[in-house]
Design a protein around this nucleic acid. Sequence first.
DNA 1: ATCAACTCTGAAACTTGTTCTAGATTACCG
DNA 2: CGGTAATCTAGAACAAGTTTCAGAGTTGAT
Lengths: 206, 206
Amino acid sequence: MEVSIARAAAQPDTPPLTERQEARRRRILHASAQLASRGGFDAVQMREVAESSQVALGTLYRYFPSKVHLLVATMQSQLEHMHGTLRKKPPSGETAAERVAETLMRAFRALQREPHLADAMVRALTFADRSVSPEVDQVSRQTTAIILDAMGLENPTPDQLSAVRVIEHTWHSALVTWLSGRASIAQVKIDIETVCRLIDLTSPRD
Amino acid sequence: MEVSIARAAAQPDTPPLTERQEARRRRILHASAQLASRGGFDAVQMREVAESSQVALGTLYRYFPSKVHLLVATMQSQLEHMHGTLRKKPPSGETAAERVAETLMRAFRALQREPHLADAMVRALTFADRSVSPEVDQVSRQTTAIILDAMGLENPTPDQLSAVRVIEHTWHSALVTWLSGRASIAQVKIDIETVCRLIDLTSPRD
DNA sequence: ATCAACTCTGAAACTTGTTCTAGATTACCG
DNA sequence: CGGTAATCTAGAACAAGTTTCAGAGTTGAT
């Protein structure tokens, strides 16, 4: 029976991966991030990823059914790493809005350090079609978790969740405009601070 | 001397197009929109666009240097049309926030009628790299104009412009999540209404 | 009307994502 | 250990975006 390895990482019901398979998966993601860091979305060429990670092209496709899947998975892994880093130094702002803005700007500065990698991941994310929905959703959940963390909320109201979604929208889209050179870093900062005001709007009492 | 026709439409300094060239350009955009309406981004194949618009492939590329350029131009032309339509029936809301939300939801419903076309245009827009910046910027300006129109503002403050940018971010990103099936129409509506509250926040006095 | 420059055409070639195949390797079960 | 199903490899093949080129057609200036 054919069982795709592709979603073994996400789906809890699929058989666990062998050690060598885990290693392959890590090698692939590493190669992907490395190539992306060099030249962005276009520099991540499937043949090169396969070669760099010492895996046959067919195998690469067995692990990640498309280039977009691969890059979204790369983003997942980077996000996890970032969430861990952010946790270590919680934001210092007084209000929830300040803390969220601070956290997002910190994340933004991290992305700035590898702009090509950011480009590849964000382009993949917004270019993803329905077949990548589960993975993109996972990224979205992770982002939501980071924002809720910064807000320090346990049980957000629907109103607050909507605000968080809007913040995420702004975050992604601002990132896109910055990456394509249509907005400055200062502008991104202002936009993030602006949208974060919504938080105060949705929780008048603390 | 070689002069690219591609940006003749946008750049005011390039020589004007012949009538036959205008006609070619229109045929191309029409074919692009038609194919996009049928099957979205993937269905817009350059060879097919060329054939449908009775133009050689090389000519198509002379007019639009890439598929993304073509689709962004398609979006420009659709947006112009929509701006005209929206102007005819101004939104009825009391507050600026209500009017903007109403306008955007109206635009959203228009896109819903041709979801494949919307998909093609939005995917192209967010996938566009730096080489398409001028064209994407033009689309952004057009969108800004629509929103400012709905607000009924002549001289927006910097604060208000930032709010408008955030609204645009939300609008694009919400559209993307809806198109990829990760958000319902109801959710898009809520998010747009949520972000529009920012308008009231930035203009305490009328 | 004529010439030079520019534009368009048709077709082939090239690039990179994706799929397919046949045969080696590996993992697991008894 | 032996057998079998799943997995991996190398490489060819295919698809669609993009580039290139030689020749035919247009255009605009003189």
